[in-house]
Design a protein around this nucleic acid. Sequence first.
DNA 1: ATAGCTGCAAATGCTTTGCAAGGCC
DNA 2: GGCCTTGCAAAGCATTTGCAGCTAT
Lengths: 144, 144
Amino acid sequence: MTPQVNENRTDVIDLENKIRSANLRPTRQRISLAKLLFSEGNRHITAEKLHGEALGKGVKISLATIYNNLHQFTTAGLLREVVVDASKSYFDTNVEPHHHFFHEDRGLLEDISSHRLTVDDIPNLPEGTEISSIDVIVRLTKRK
Amino acid sequence: MTPQVNENRTDVIDLENKIRSANLRPTRQRISLAKLLFSEGNRHITAEKLHGEALGKGVKISLATIYNNLHQFTTAGLLREVVVDASKSYFDTNVEPHHHFFHEDRGLLEDISSHRLTVDDIPNLPEGTEISSIDVIVRLTKRK
DNA sequence: ATAGCTGCAAATGCTTTGCAAGGCC
DNA sequence: GGCCTTGCAAAGCATTTGCAGCTAT
């Protein structure tokens, strides 16, 4: 019979490989963050909240390290930064092209798969430029 | 012949009325800001830049007052805040529905008239919510 | 061994706030 | 006169940075 241990082991090894693929060393802190970020479907999270979650699970890690790693993951293409709020940064574990609902009252992001919302009739671009990305944010409030 | 003075005078009176319509007193500082913001077509500007322009024209005004007034104008519907950059706020003098090009390298915003770009196939909204606004940002970089 | 990482605390940059003095109605 | 505004400086927040000590390879 296969020991349980192996299944957990495999997950961690996947995460380590993911981290290695970004040319980063799989440190204790990075593995913990990767576990929080990539273990359970798409997430949209702020540095502060991630720090809280880590501490809550008994992972010792400083906020500075959270920031450093969120940016390193983003640069490596493992995360995408979403600008929706002037006062804080959100990081999205879904790096495929897609758009967002933003629940303004709760400060919460939700994916809109890109084939469910399309942008049409994009006008001619200004001379000498090309598109880096297109961000669509559908801002939501509670229905009155 | 109509003296030149009257034409300038009229402009200032329009601005004063605009300020009054927002239930704000037309102070020296507000009139100066309104002149900078609303005299020459649509603008997209940060608090810092507006402060610089004011000082450059010899208008004595503090940065705190700039921020206060940008927010008061925004609340009154004279301006719209555009979130494109995590680190600073842009204010847009065009309050009609429309979208934006954002020149990432220059930190510059440009309007896309809304009939030149449309968003289609918006999926069903989450239960109990309604759309507050839809922001489309086409991020541009220099063409290589 | 050594290049890369982490944690802390200090520094930064933008924005907000408290409060006394000044200005509009 | 009374309330709204302003300016200054201080405070606030999210984020970044410098650097000494630690860690993965």
